[in-house]
Each structure stands twice: as structure tokens, then as C-alpha cells.
Amino acid sequence: MCGLIGKNLGMTSIFSKDGENIPCTIVYIPLCYVVQVKTINNDGYFSVQLGIKEKKIEKTTKSLLGHFKKAGISPKKKLLEFKCDSMPSFQIGSSIKINIFQEGELVDIKGISKGKGFQGVVKRHHFSGVGESTHGQHNRLRAPGSIGAGSDPSRVFKGKKMGGRTGGKNVTIKKMKILKVDTHQYFILLKGSVPGNKNSYLMIKKRKWN
């Protein structure tokens, strides 16, 4: 299996056998249901669409209701697609458990980072600013400075580092170590932090080579 969908429950810490305090993230992984299986013949690539968490029928659109009805399962709140290298062996409507992961395994975590709103260049791009308030620079401490010439080219080049919306992007952290797998309470402990707020959804992908 390529991976599962998890929910970020926040951070904690555990002690190793050597007494080291290790910060880790608790990720809740309930049963994931196979909603759709894509193949090269029909879609041009191999992938599995998974869904978790029940959703009320009255809050589901008719098109999605037909999609879930075709799979023979109840509507799910979160759907994510995992690409595969070969034909998936899972059948539509079947469930996948957390036990596909093992302690000590390395996985890739993908999520949406925390949104920080409109930010200036110091916070967004780590500009240092003027650094001193002398020589009349009373209001330029966190300013971006010059952004280009005037007459030629008479415009700002695309990709210029300026202020703007920060965060809220897809972020992938590779090679995160699984410290613990609890098959009874359906959660895993990941070493370190993951992108996103508490209760945000994560894609937990298995790596080809650990």
C-alpha cells in the first residue's frame, strides 16, 4: 500500500532507552476505505483514492453521493489520492488498517502548512532590514528596499521577493521516523513536527527505500 490518511492530534515527547527526551507528533489513523482505484487503461496512471471520517448524507453533494454509492460505502469527509507504481491489490470498498506501518520505518508526511496571513519581507523571506536607525532611516527598518530600475525595464520582474500571503501551502517532510505504532488506539508517534495545525489531515506515504 502507498500510504494512509492521518489526523494531527498535536505534539508530545517520550523518553528513549538512553534517557533522551524526544519530541514527537501524535497522528490518529482510523480505518481508511478504498473509494476508487485508478489504472493506466482508464486513467493513465495507478493510484488509490482513500476516504476517512463519516459525513452526513444531507451535507454531501449528489455527485459525491453517486461516487460513494459506486464504491458501496457511506460518504466520507476527507478524500486523498495516493499514486502507486504498480496495480494496487486492494478492492473498492475495502478498508485498510494502521498495521501496514511498523516501528522504526521512515515515511513521508504531506500536509498544508499553517497560514500566517499577509506578511512583510522580514518574516516571509528572512530579510534583515536596515539594522540601524541612523542617517534618517527612521521608518525603513523592516522595508524591502529597491525592487528594480525605473525607466528600463519599467516593471517588476516576476518572482521578486516581496510581501504577501504566507503559509497555507502543501509541504512534504521526508524521512520521518515512526517511533511507535498503537494498533488498538489507532495512532502512531512520529519523531519531530509535521506541517499544519492540530486536527488537520495528513498524507502518510510509505517510502520505496528506507
Rank of each mutant, 00 (worst) to 15 (best):
K161A: 00
P144Y: 03
C2Y: 09
L50E: 03
M176H: 12
K7W: 03
F118G: 04
Y186Q: 14
H125V: 05
C24R: 07
P75Q: 05
I178F: 09
G6T: 02
Q185Y: 15
I73Q: 06
N21T: 12
T166C: 12
F90V: 14
D182S: 09
S133H: 01
V37Q: 00
K76M: 15
Y201A: 07
I100Q: 05
F101D: 01
R124D: 01
F46Y: 15
V34Y: 02
W209P: 01
R207P: 05
R142P: 02
W209T: 15
I73N: 05
G111R: 00
K177D: 08
N197S: 12
P153Q: 05
F82I: 05
N210I: 08
L64C: 01
F187G: 06
G196A: 03
K161D: 03
Y45H: 15
E132K: 11
K83H: 10
V48Y: 06
I22T: 06
V156H: 05
E103Y: 01
I73T: 02
D43C: 08
M203H: 06
L31S: 12
Y33T: 13
F82L: 07
D152H: 14
K191L: 09
C2H: 11
N8A: 07
V35D: 08
Q91M: 13
G115T: 08
M11C: 10
K175W: 02
E132P: 03
H126V: 01
V35T: 11
G168N: 15
Y186T: 09
P30N: 09
G150F: 14
G192D: 08
G3W: 00
K208D: 15
S151N: 13
E103H: 03
F82H: 04
N41Q: 12
P144D: 01
L4R: 00
K158D: 10
G93I: 02
T12Q: 09
T39N: 11
S47I: 05
F68L: 00
Y186V: 04
L4Y: 04
S63I: 13
K53Y: 14
S86T: 15
Y201L: 11
K158E: 14
K55N: 12
